[in-house]
Computed example of a mutant assay.
Amino acid sequence: MTNLKVGVQLHPQATTVANLREAWKAADAMGVDSIWIWDHFYPLYGDPSAPHFEAYTLLAALAADTSHARLGALVTCNSYRNPQLLADMSRTIDHISDGRFTLGIGSGWFERDYEEYGYAFGTAIERLHKLRDDLPVIKDRLAKLTPPPMGPLPILIGGSGEKVTLKLVAEHADGWNTFGPAENFAAKNAILDEWCQKVGRNPADIERTVAIGATDIDQWEGLAEAGATHFIVMTGDPFDLDPVAQLQAAVHA
């Protein structure tokens, strides 16, 4: 299945910048299709006081250090940055990468980030409505910037809410990310197709990505049958890229 893609998400927690740079350089040299980090301020698992690094400053370094893979945050929390500024940051990183940046974005969910950094957490639907309102602002600013993005600068939305999130994907996104297992992915994928029909969007215009654990790469065939075309292997330090290489070999066999 040569049309399938393989990427990696490197967790910027319990690690060093040196280790992250070594890992994303190695992943790029392997020919992965995409390299991602996440957008949080504190660890999501393990020791809650472990080291952690901010996403967009890392992404600028990732853009400069690599030459092949597409890159982005899986996914940016929309609440953390003014949407006009986020568009400009994304455009600038796109230029640093020679046009390889993808703006992955979602409505946000990790309450500790909000509380400790002074953002209003609100409710899930309030955060979704803010994302709904900010997406057109981001797209409008991207269209106004001088110079414009160097590459296509696609927007990828992460999430699986059937009433709001998937509608936003159909309306605004070039890519969509969620999780398995295959049954879950298939069900959400079908609902996204329904939203595309309702809003007049060609479902084929939206890339379907799935985030999978390093120990779950054997599930790729079921996920592919469910509609996934881009597999993103999630890993923390120590950054073992062997499962990524194994998945590359399997999907391209």
Results as ranks from 00 to 15, higher is better:
residue 249 A to S: 14
residue 188 K to T: 13
residue 43 P to I: 04
residue 157 I to W: 12
residue 161 G to L: 09
residue 57 T to Y: 03
residue 208 R to M: 09
residue 85 L to F: 10
residue 247 L to F: 10
residue 12 P to F: 11
residue 122 G to P: 08
residue 157 I to A: 07
residue 202 N to T: 13
residue 115 E to N: 14
residue 16 T to Q: 03
residue 45 Y to P: 00
residue 20 L to W: 09
residue 200 G to A: 06
residue 147 P to C: 00
residue 49 S to R: 12
residue 119 Y to P: 09
residue 146 T to H: 01
residue 114 Y to W: 10
residue 131 L to R: 01
residue 16 T to I: 02
residue 55 A to Q: 08
residue 105 I to F: 10
residue 239 F to C: 04
residue 12 P to I: 06
residue 89 M to Y: 12
residue 250 A to I: 06
residue 38 W to S: 09
residue 77 C to L: 07
residue 32 V to G: 01
residue 146 T to A: 01
residue 156 L to T: 14
residue 222 G to L: 08
residue 214 A to C: 00
residue 22 E to V: 12
residue 41 F to N: 05
residue 138 I to R: 04
residue 189 N to L: 06
residue 126 E to I: 00
residue 20 L to N: 11
residue 118 G to H: 11
residue 167 K to N: 15
residue 16 T to F: 04
residue 79 S to R: 14
residue 38 W to Q: 05
residue 182 A to Q: 06
residue 141 R to P: 01
residue 90 S to I: 04
residue 167 K to M: 15
residue 67 S to W: 00
residue 189 N to G: 11
residue 18 A to I: 05
residue 63 A to K: 04
residue 48 P to V: 06
residue 65 D to Q: 01
residue 93 I to E: 07
residue 106 G to C: 07
residue 73 A to L: 10
residue 218 D to R: 11
residue 190 A to G: 10
residue 75 V to L: 13
residue 166 L to R: 11
residue 105 I to N: 10
residue 166 L to T: 12
residue 194 E to Q: 15
residue 84 Q to I: 09
residue 9 Q to L: 15
residue 199 V to M: 10
residue 169 V to M: 07
residue 61 A to R: 07
residue 15 T to E: 05
residue 207 E to I: 10
residue 244 V to Q: 03
residue 129 H to K: 12
residue 54 E to Y: 15
residue 99 G to C: 04
residue 131 L to F: 02
residue 18 A to T: 11
residue 197 Q to T: 14
residue 105 I to W: 11
residue 227 G to R: 05
residue 106 G to S: 13
residue 172 H to V: 05
residue 4 L to D: 05
residue 10 L to N: 03
residue 190 A to R: 15
residue 164 V to S: 06
residue 216 D to Q: 13
residue 26 A to K: 13
residue 25 K to N: 05
residue 23 A to Y: 12
residue 17 V to Q: 13
residue 142 L to H: 04
residue 22 E to Q: 14
residue 78 N to K: 03
residue 47 D to Q: 03
residue 114 Y to I: 04
residue 213 G to E: 05
residue 209 T to E: 08
residue 82 N to L: 04
residue 141 R to V: 09
residue 210 V to A: 02
residue 222 G to Q: 13
residue 163 K to Y: 12
residue 234 M to Q: 10
residue 58 L to F: 10
residue 35 I to M: 02
residue 190 A to V: 11
residue 198 K to N: 14
residue 243 P to G: 01
residue 193 D to Q: 15
